[in-house]
Design a protein around this nucleic acid. Structure first.
Lengths: 148, 148
DNA sequence: ATATAGATGCAAATTAGTTGCATATGAGTA
DNA sequence: TACTCATATGCAACTAATTTGCATCTATAT
């Protein structure tokens, strides 16, 4: 079951609070990402919008804005293009990615706070850590079976 | 100080053992990556080769081979393109990346073994984990100062 | 209702990564 | 050492990903 999308009203307020305008295009994108609750590529987003086509440029710009505002996190699944995942009011998590078929699975149990604090303490050059990536790459059971 | 490059002789043997041919182009790339000991982009590699230009196609293919053999690891620094870092006989580590100026710093203290074992145990769909990404994104002190 | 900073969407450019194919060569074998 | 052949190379051409510029539009504060 997928998570419920953020409510439109809440989102409008959220966005304004972060200094962004709540436009239809943005609300639509936010609704989609929060509803799907999984990493989506630009292509995937376009596909999901179907008829009412979204302009890629706007998508990129909106995603960038969302990222800055902390609504969305960029995820690299090593598919040759970026993925974006709704992050607002979701439990922090990462992904297992099958390097053969691309299937992904969520994984929680990453202690971002502790992890980044430790890294920061050791670092000589960094002032603060704001985000991090942590994906695991391997082989899923289906692909493993079909190998042997 | 940068790490010493792997010795050419050792590398030849290594590559043959992994089923790859030790060609001049590969030895040159391996020497560069192991000498630099930091994530390099395709562009960066080309630049480093200077005059004796390297064919991008060959680079991609060689890097892919190196990755499969475990000599090299792909790193996503969120620069819009992949980076590759020499991984053979180097201590496992990750990176701090400044999202403003791009400067990177190494970070060790990642327990890959424990981490992946835990994830694997919880997973229903994965047979094994072979690699993982774990980069930290933040602001370096230089950029932080210039903000305030 | 209005003004205006911020957002949109086209066209066009740039950058990243891939595929096909003809040629060349490393490395095992005779 | 010479041979052979699977593997690697490098050009051309292509597809995909991402960015920039600019004219137009519109949310929102007043």
């Amino acid at each position: 079951m997928s998570k419920a999308a953020v409510l439109e009203g809440d989102l409008k307020l959220l966005m304004r609070k972060s200094g962004y305008r709540a436009t239809p295009a943005r609300l639509r994108l936010a609704a989609l990402l929060s509803r799907e609750a999984k990493p989506m590529s630009i292509q995937g987003i376009e596909r999901a919008f179907g008829g009412k086509k979204a302009d890629v440029v706007t998508l990129y710009r909106t995603l960038f804005a969302f990222e800055k505002a902390g609504f969305v996190r960029q995820v690299d699944l090593r598919h040759g293009h970026a993925h974006y995942e709704w992050a607002h009011e979701r439990t922090h998590h990462h992904h297992l990615v099958c390097t053969r078929c691309g299937v992904t699975e969520e994984y929680d149990g990453c202690e971002f706070a502790a992890f980044s604090k430790k890294a920061l303490k050791k670092s000589k050059q960094f002032a603060r850590i704001e985000d991090h990536a942590s994906e695991l790459f391997g082989i899923c059971t289906r692909c493993d079976v079909s190998t042997s």
